[in-house]
Design a protein around this nucleic acid. Sequence first.
DNA 1: AATTCGGGGCA
DNA 2: TGCCCAGAATT
Length: 378
Amino acid sequence: MSKEITWTQEKKTSFQEDLLTWYRLEKRDLPWRESTDPYRVWVSEIMLQQTQVVTVIPYFNRFMEWFPTIEALANANEDKLLKAWEGLGYYSRVRNMQHAAKEIVKTFDGKMPNKIEDILSLKGVGPYTGGAIGSIAFSLPEPAIDGNVMRVYSRLFCLADDIALPKTRKVFDRYVRDTMSQSEPGDFNQALMDLGATICTPTKPSCETCPIQAYCEAKKTNTISKYPVKKKKEKAKPLYYVADILQNDTGAFLLEKRPSDGLLADMWTFPMREVTKKDYDRFSQIYDSHDVSTGMVAEQLNLYDEVENIKDKNLLGIVTHIFSHRKWHILVVQDKLNGLKDTHLTNQKWVYLDEFPQYVFPKPQQKMVELLKKSMNN
DNA sequence: AATTCGGGGCA
DNA sequence: TGCCCAGAATT
């Protein structure tokens, strides 16, 4: 079924040397490369999942200050932990990491285990991250196959397997395992990542400066642009919401904690409710056609009866936010009367503006707060 | 095997 | 806009 690897041992060796030589010369200077301490490698690899290097750097430095050791992570306060991750996304990553840290303290004497099976047993550590930790921290000859590596190898061997399919990772595993450096697996894996990030890029790769162009089948056959093969993703499904900004007579705002599972678990937002696209459109069209810098009252537009749920509200603005699989459209409204409304829901809380930084806000909420602050300055 | 998890960088 | 990013867990 899949192609055989036809490289001689001599070719493999010289390929590895060319790649490693380039890496020693050109490798990026990154905070987590100051050492190969397993904890630092682990934290960086988790943060780097589906996240670009430039985004991770400040988060990584702060995280290491706040939680310098595995034990510190295991014992960390949950709110502080989530706060350290605020804005980074995929929040289950940090919950899983603490779960794993506790496991390491309990089962592995507080030290990252050095056997690949044990590393892979940790919550949140999959084939990629396990290979990265194993190879970089413990020099285990394990591949670390991510999007970069699949792109590089798909071109190197003209592999047309759809890299969006789960089973394709096994194909690449075989190729990388068979061609990687056994003596310096950590540098080899990191070299592939750097190559994918700086030379063998998705569009317009710099083949002229590529240290392994002589080995590249796609370069030889002038088919670079055909690789990697990847099925297109579904578009994000649009969802429509109204968010209420309510303020009590002491000036505090009502916040609501999201459920413990699902999207943005345990994070705080203004109370939101889903509305139909029809209701959303009606109101947002009106919004588009008017100056909203001073806010607008639906009531004044005789839409009182047409726009259910949002009458009596001042529209502060619209927040949109794109996740990987859905797109939120949020009408942000404020009760036009500074109401004396109260709440008895346990997942809600009255919070003053200057206390907001103590709460973990996902991006859409941060955007809504910006709208609120802007309106308060007018 | 398909879906569900955020958010930003960049043409 | 659409694509990609040092992916893993859940269903």
